[in-house]
């Protein structure tokens, strides 16, 4: 379902947000990114990033320590 995937496992702040920003720059409007992260800070950081940039975080799933974020580029 996603147009692009990024694996941020093992990365800590600020790298997941840096990778997320870089991925968004490569993508087209309306495309969906699946982001995988296990930085516990990402749970607050990704929604904050979404709120600020206007790219829609429409789904979050947690599997143990792993968090999946689904973001639609505005």
């Amino acid at each position: 379902m996603a147009d692009e995937n990024i694996d941020c496992r093992g990365m800590m702040c600020p790298m997941p947000i840096v990778q997320l920003t870089k991925a968004m720059k490569r993508m087209e409007s309306g495309q969906v990114l699946e982001m995988m992260a296990d930085d516990p800070g990402a749970k607050e950081d990704v929604p904050a990033w979404s709120h600020r940039t206007g790219n829609e975080l429409f789904e979050t799933k947690e599997e143990g320590d792993l968090i999946y974020f689904y973001i639609k580029k505005k």
């Binding site: 702040c13 600020p14 840096v18 950081d45 600020r52 940039t53």
Partner: peptide
């Protein structure tokens, strides 16, 4: 640099 890269990534 953590603050700078993060803020820039948030469109600031």
């Amino acid at each position: 640099m953590f603050m700078a890269t993060t803020a820039a990534g948030m469109g600031v």
